[in-house]
Simulated scan of single mutants.
Amino acid sequence: MYPDSFRPLFCHEPSPLTAEMMDHLFHIRLSEMGSNKRRAEELVVAFWRDYLQDVEEQEGPSKLGKILAFATGASVIPPVGFSPQPLVEFLHDQSLSPKLCLPMANTCINCLKLPLLDKYERFRESMDFALGNTQGFGRERLDLLYIV
């Protein structure tokens, strides 16, 4: 008789993503304390957090959803969460391949690999380029079909 009363119990309504939610969602795997790798990684962690804040302020939850989809394949946090937990790792051997200056992701294991760049502007450009040039599992095309 009262379907609207029970809707929150049986239907998941994802809340809009925030930079803080994204930061807490991803576990960051750092190298050993005191190593040179660790210092470079800590700099990029600061860039990652700044990037999330900038995206939230400038473009909102939809772009945060693109970041999440790039890393996990899901643009919202599922009701039961992720398994495995989303993870941030780092690309250390950039000198071996110029492609490693772009972030990479493995959606099967919910892993986002960030490039070790020394300037925030380069990091931001790298992230924006990767996110802007990803197919997103064809979801954009499906969304267009429903709009038309």
Rank of each mutant, 00 (worst) to 15 (best):
L145P: 04
L52C: 09
L87H: 03
A46K: 11
P115E: 02
A46T: 14
F6Y: 10
T72V: 10
D23N: 13
C111W: 03
N36H: 05
S75V: 06
H24R: 12
L142G: 06
G132L: 02
Q53Y: 03
M127G: 02
A69H: 11
N106I: 07
M22Y: 02
G73W: 11
L96T: 12
K37R: 11
E32L: 05
F6V: 15
I28Y: 00
F129C: 14
L117M: 04
I28P: 01
P79W: 02
T72E: 13
R141Q: 12
E89G: 08
G65H: 09
D93I: 07
C101W: 10
R124F: 12
L114R: 06
Q58E: 14
W48C: 11
S15N: 03
P84R: 02
I109Y: 07
V44A: 05
K63G: 04
R124I: 11
G34F: 12
E140N: 07
F90I: 12
D23V: 07
F82G: 00
F47Y: 14
S126V: 11
K37V: 06
A19F: 03
D118Q: 06
L87W: 06
F123P: 01
Q85M: 05
C101M: 12
Q94Y: 10
S5F: 12
L131V: 03
P61E: 15
M127Q: 04
S35E: 07
R39M: 09
P103Y: 01
C11Q: 10
Q53P: 02
V80R: 07
R29W: 09
S31T: 14
G136R: 03
F129P: 03
G65P: 06
F26K: 01
R49Q: 08
G81D: 04
L25T: 00
L64M: 02
I147V: 10
V76E: 04
S95V: 14
A46Q: 14
T107I: 12
G34L: 12
P103H: 04
P103F: 05
P8W: 11
Y2V: 10
E121W: 04
N110A: 05
H92R: 15
A46I: 15
L64T: 05
G65K: 08
A105K: 14
G132F: 04
L116G: 03
S35T: 13
P61G: 08
A40Y: 04
L30T: 07
Y2D: 15
N133S: 08
S31D: 14
I67Y: 02
E41H: 00
F47K: 01
K113G: 07
P8E: 11
L30S: 02
Y2L: 15
S35P: 13
L114E: 10
E121S: 10
G60Y: 01
P86L: 03
Y146I: 09
T18L: 01
Y51E: 10
L68T: 02
L9Y: 05
E32T: 13
N110R: 09
F123L: 03
L144Y: 10
P86R: 07
A71H: 03
L116M: 06
A46P: 08
D93T: 11
P3Y: 13
M22R: 03
R141Y: 11
P79V: 04
P84D: 01
D4F: 13
N106H: 00
F47G: 01
P79T: 03
E20I: 13
R49N: 14
G132K: 04
N36C: 08
H27S: 11
F6K: 12
K37Y: 09
P8Y: 08
N133D: 04
